[in-house]
Nucleic acid binder design. Structure first.
Length: 733
DNA sequence: GGCAATAGGCTTTTT
DNA sequence: GCCTATTGCC
């Protein structure tokens, strides 16, 4: 171990080495993209162990993704295989583990299940139905998000009620306390709970907090800029005793503000810990100089950031190519063309490429073309595997077997596959349970006592009860693997899907097979496999975690997903106003800065070459829209950019379809369209208008025709608003 | 209670 | 354009 440490120490630059050796007291490491952040973290742990400052189980290292945690674990294994007992994991998995141990103190049993966004929404819907809040007026998802935001910001149901400003918040304030109540009844936690409940646990039980404070002599936090208020408090609490806290992050890569992440946590670390040591890692080992110049030129436009400048000892490298295309199909073609060129010219292979985009929906056009060209690709993200309906159905069975109190899962499967227990019956049973303060599962067990359910249906219910009961008793006798296979077989899922030869059912059957394989894999890899541990793993996994760089394929994913990864060649597609930066960020400077950081993250994924592309016309939802190039393209250091002119278009052809569609056209860049247009209409892009209330402005987009015609006007005062032309009473200037 | 047809919502990003 | 949830009919 000593040898390998010495060898590797030579690989650290002076700043990295200082950050590794400064083990005592609070330490803040600003680690720019590609500056060897993971290396510093792992060496630091290895160094602490080597100096025998702590035992492995006294070191806690927290990350945001399983992938990052796994990489850290892997690298540390190189230093010695006794390091298995280190506490390395995601925030959520670490605290899920602690919650299992301390569940009793919270009125939970250790078999609790973890609800994902879908379960959460179902529960909220149930509450809305029960409390008579009309689903039509309030969207359960917005309510779920609102509650999530409150929890991340440590706003309790009580304080939420105290700060109501809108009717919507009033509705949320009625649901929020009941939601927490039902979670407890269902013996379930949601994602936010995994962070906020430990905090409550610690504040209500100081002796428990002290136990963990004493245990964790050294605490490390990765991607500190992504912590939210709750996570920050949790870290702060745990580190208070030994004060050996090392946080590593990069404010320029903070891209999860919308999820409650608070950059202030990293920017104000020195305020929270006045005696902290600060290190800045600014040498980038990943990218060419050109790439860093371009990336810096973009992120410098942000006001809220710590001054720093990444540099590289590498060569200048190639310029960034900006590609302008006619529509998203041509964009895809160009990307494919460039990949072919790179493969041919530079002898690159598919795994060298990543195609990034802002929204998952953009992947389709790219996929179509890649498939046509016979190039292998993998999509990371999108519809997550464990969130697919057929998988969630099986998971719901498993959750019930582990925790019969979980009424959300119970309702999901009570009549799936169809067994003659319909909605009205379920409602009767719920009502019966509610009146007696029992769980829904109790109604099922004691179905004979519910006399207003016909005998025939009672029989169906008691069959269902026997089925679940059988697996509950099997749970301790056979492995999760055998149990799941028997279950899938008994409820006839595979036969059900296979019977129908439609593509979607075939792919469902395929997914179930994949799921069964995942269970086997879990059983093989775990020391003491249990159903409940498997469920936890599944709940906390993401698709990036499953991304493996071994297969030789082009990677497609969102910019968010790409964080922490690197590729020789990066494509960032859809560089258009309204898409990137996404339209919702336009009127909020902080959101816009976050978009810019996201762009920065994308750019710094590249080792050698960057292609940026945008399309003049793009299909979104079901309509075509004309587009303007992203403002970010203007922010690139022009000396490092090479603009590729679109193919000379001899005739801009518009099919009759183009005129039938309801399109948004932006005219400044499309004089061609004007000459083809049969409509003489003063309300088009670029027209300056005056509005009674808002003053003077310019039309920036148009949609719809006739009476439905709407325009978006950007006013000189700064704001932007959409109007129905019919009612707006504009004065044309 | 079951099933097929239709309406409606959505697309920013995720542990 | 897709997926899901709801509706209306059997």
């Amino acid at each position: 171990m000593k040898d390998s440490l010495n060898t590797l120490f030579r690989e650290l630059n002076p700043e990295q080495q200082k950050a590794v050796e400064e083990t005592e007291g609070p330490v803040l490491v600003f680690a720019g993209a590609g500056s060897g952040k993971t290396r510093v973290l792992t060496y630091r742990i290895a160094f602490i162990l080597k100096e025998q400052k702590a035992s492995p189980w006294e070191i806690l290292a927290m990350t945001f993704t399983n992938k990052a945690a796994g990489e850290m674990k892997n690298r540390i294994q190189h230093f010695g295989d006794k390091n298995k007992n280190l506490w390395i994991g995601t925030f959520h998995s670490i605290f899920a583990k602690i919650l299992r141990w301390e569940a009793g103190l919270l009125g939970y049993s250790p078999d609790f299940v973890i609800y994902d966004a879908d379960d959460k929404e179902r529960l909220i819907k149930t509450i809305m139905e029960d409390t008579g809040i009309p689903l039509q007026n309030y969207n359960p998802r917005s309510i779920s998000e609102s509650i999530g935001r409150a929890k991340n910001g440590l706003v309790s149901p009580e304080s939420f009620i105290a700060s109501i400003n809108t009717p919507f918040q009033e509705v949320v304030s009625r649901i929020y306390p009941e939601y927490q109540n039902r979670l407890r009844i269902n013996n379930a936690f949601d994602f936010e709970d995994l962070i906020t409940v430990p905090l409550r646990l610690f504040s209500e039980n100081p002796e428990v907090l002290e136990k963990y404070q004493r245990r964790f002599k050294y605490i490390l936090v990765d991607e500190y800029q992504d912590t939210n208020k709750a996570q920050y408090r949790l870290v702060y609490q745990l580190a208070k005793k030994h004060r050996n806290l090392c946080v590593v992050g990069d404010d320029d890569q903070s891209i999860y503000r919308w999820r409650g992440a608070d950059v202030r946590n990293i920017l104000e670390f020195e305020k929270d810990f006045p005696d902290s040591k600060v290190f800045k890692l600014e040498q980038n080992y990943r990218s060419t100089q050109t790439i860093l110049i371009v990336a810096n030129s973009v992120v410098e436009k942000n006001a809220a950031r710590k001054a720093k400048k990444l540099w590289s000892a590498k060569e200048m490298g190639e310029k960034v190519d900006v590609i302008e295309t006619a529509d998203e199909r041509e964009e895809a073609q160009k990307v494919v063309e460039k990949i072919k060129e790179e493969v041919f010219r530079k002898k690159r292979t598919f795994r060298d490429f990543a195609i990034l985009y802002r929204t998952n929906a953009q992947s389709r056009a790219l996929e179509d073309d890649l498939r046509r060209s016979g190039m292998s690709y993998i999509i990371v993200g999108g519809v997550r595997f464990y969130e697919r309906k057929e998988i969630k159905d099986i998971l719901a069975y498993l959750k019930i077997i582990v925790n019969t109190k979980d009424s959300v899962s119970l309702k999901r499967i009570i009549n799936f596959p169809l067994r003659g227990i319909g909605d009205s019956t379920t409602q009767k049973m719920e009502q019966w349970a509610l009146e007696r303060g029992l769980h829904l599962f109790e109604s099922i067990r004691r179905i004979k006592e519910i006399t207003d359910i016909p005998l025939r249906i009672q029989k169906n219910i008691s069959n269902f009860y026997d089925l679940i009961q059988k697996y509950i008793s099997l749970k301790s006798k056979i492995s999760p693997n055998e149990l799941v296979r028997t279950l899938v077989d008994e409820i006839g899922l595979m036969t059900m899907y296979k019977q129908d030869p439609s593509i979607e059912n075939q792919s469902r059957a395929e997914n179930i097979r994949e799921f069964l394989a995942a269970v086997s894999e879990y059983v093989d890899s775990s020391e003491s496999p249990s159903l409940s541990e498997f469920l936890e793993q599944v709940s906390l996994i993401t698709d990036v975690d499953a991304w493996d760089d071994k297969s030789n394929a082009i990677t497609l994913m969102t910019l968010h997903c790409a964080k922490g990864l690197e590729f020789p060649v990066i494509f960032i597609t859809g560089m258009e106003e309204g898409l990137f930066p996404i339209s919702r960020s336009e009127d909020e400077p902080e959101a816009l800065e976050e978009e810019r950081r996201l762009f920065y993250v994308g750019l710094t994924r590249a080792k050698e070459k960057i292609y940026l592309s945008w399309a003049e016309k793009r299909r979104l939802f079901n309509e075509s829209y004309f587009r303007l190039p992203s403002r970010f393209l203007d922010e690139l250091d022009s000396s490092c950019v090479h603009k590729m002119k679109p193919h000379p278009r001899k005739h801009v052809k518009f099919t009759s379809n183009d005129f039938k569609q309801e399109v948004t056209y932006t005219c400044d860049t499309h004089p061609d369209y004007e000459s083809y247009s049969q409509e003489v209409d003063p309300y088009r892009c670029g027209t300056r208008v005056h509005h009674q209330t808002f003053g003077k402005g310019k039309i920036v987009s148009v949609e719809g025709k006739g009476k439905k015609k709407k325009v978006v006007v950007r006013f000189d005062s700064g704001g932007q608003k959409k109007f129905l032309v019919q009612y707006a009473q504009f004065e044309i200037l």
